[in-house]
Amino acid sequence: MIDLDTYDFELPKEFIAQKPIKPRDTAKLMILRKKNKIEHKSFYNIIDEFESGDLILLNNSKVIPSRMFGKKETGGKIEILFIKNMEKKYGENIWLVMLRGRGLKKGRKIIINGRNSSISGEIIKRVERAEFLIKSNLDTKVVRDFIKENGIIALPPYIKKPYNNFQMYQTIYSKKEGSIAAPTAGLHFTKELLDNLKKKGVNIGYLTLHVSASSFKPVYGKINKSPLDPEFFSIPKETEKSYNNSVNDNKNIGLVGTTTLKAIESATDKNGLITKNEGYSDLFIYPGYEFHSKVSKFITNFHTPRSPPLLMVSAYLNWERILESYKIAMEKGYRFYSFGDAMLIDI
């Protein structure tokens, strides 16, 4: 049984990046090599880590604007984040949401304000902590349209600075709408960097995994089942072919981000070949997990304590080395979390 308390650590708030660096690819890059070797470079140096014929896979999911503001019927202000529609499980017009405000309890009516209209709902259940089920007064399609018209992107709670330009929280190659949070390891890529990788002969492939809110929540208690919500993934036939050919030809395969690794692990068979092109995955990767995908280079960020991405990275390498690298990162002034710097695991 894994001791989750082991994967907790203290991070002084000054190391939490509050804004993205510009240009994106000038972020710091820590490279973890074999034999405990560590190198410190800039992210644009990632091009030196790949040769012609190698493959890099990216998650092209796009963050949807699902955060809004409103009030309780008593007048108190609330903040709401729509996570997903739950009518298949609980009935018509039921939504799973995150709410922030006081006096939130079952039976409380809320009003959500839009630019030109508003919708209302009633809290029917507290699921856990800040997550609630609400029943809307309007059907699902109307609510979806309302969210699309009025929502804004929800930044992680540790980013305190308000922003109006939310493109900074999208990868430059984001295409398929569906994520609550950005696949942040990809935020470091610029168009110029991708173009230069292609000119070098590196193959760039795309897949989609829509990131849920559960992917970044800290994990507590005993792990009797996956704490993750099922997340939709899709791998185009072209990407499947590129990946499987790279496996068979023994080429380097670089994956960008924990969401991309999760999608590939969910889609590959025991031989490491992609055999499934789409589905829903609640795969929870933590230390002790046996990987079967054929990944040789793994690009990721510096993650929050007890989070599923941190546990996944610790399963891919080992926690002792990850923790030591985080300590070194603080000594070297690296920036952590969504807008922070990057790590390449090359072992």
Rank of each mutant, 00 (worst) to 15 (best):
N85I: 11
K199P: 00
N224Q: 10
I31S: 02
R144S: 06
I204N: 04
N165Q: 09
R24K: 15
V219Y: 07
F189V: 11
M98K: 07
Y7L: 15
A267R: 10
Y44M: 11
N60T: 11
L11P: 06
T239P: 05
F339P: 01
P162F: 14
W95K: 08
F302R: 14
V202L: 08
Y173P: 06
R306F: 14
R321A: 14
M330P: 05
M1K: 13
N248V: 00
D139L: 05
F233Q: 05
V219R: 04
A130V: 13
M312G: 02
P162V: 15
K160Q: 06
P287V: 09
D269C: 09
I83C: 14
K198P: 00
K72V: 02
P308Q: 13
V211N: 03
L58V: 07
K135V: 08
D229A: 03
I347W: 01
I119T: 06
I152V: 07
I347R: 00
F302A: 13
D195R: 15
K22D: 00
T275C: 10
I253F: 05
L81Q: 08
Y173V: 05
G257L: 03
K241H: 04
S66G: 03
A181T: 13
V127M: 11
N93G: 00
D346G: 02
F189K: 11
S338Q: 08
K125T: 15
K175Y: 13
I253S: 05
I347K: 00
G151D: 07
F233V: 09
G254M: 08
S136H: 12
E51T: 13
E331W: 12
L96I: 03
I152H: 09
P23W: 07
L344Q: 06
K77S: 14
G340I: 11
K109G: 06
R108Y: 01
K62L: 05
L32Y: 02
K225G: 03
G178I: 13
V295H: 02
M86R: 15
D48F: 03
F132Y: 15
Y286G: 01
S120T: 13
F233A: 04
Q18N: 05
K13H: 03
S234W: 07
N250F: 10
Q18M: 09
K191L: 08
G75N: 09
L96Y: 01
D346F: 06
V202F: 02
I328P: 06
Y326C: 12
R129W: 12
A182F: 03
S117L: 07
S212A: 10
K71Q: 08
P157E: 13
T300N: 14
T208I: 09
S314C: 13
K34L: 15
L133S: 12
G53L: 09
N245K: 09
G178P: 06
E290P: 00
S242K: 08
I80T: 02
T184I: 10
L228C: 07
I235A: 07
K62T: 02
M343Q: 12
K217L: 09
S242Q: 14
R67E: 14
R335W: 13
T260G: 10
P227F: 04
E278M: 04
I110D: 00
A342M: 08
A263C: 08
D8P: 04
T268V: 15
V256T: 14
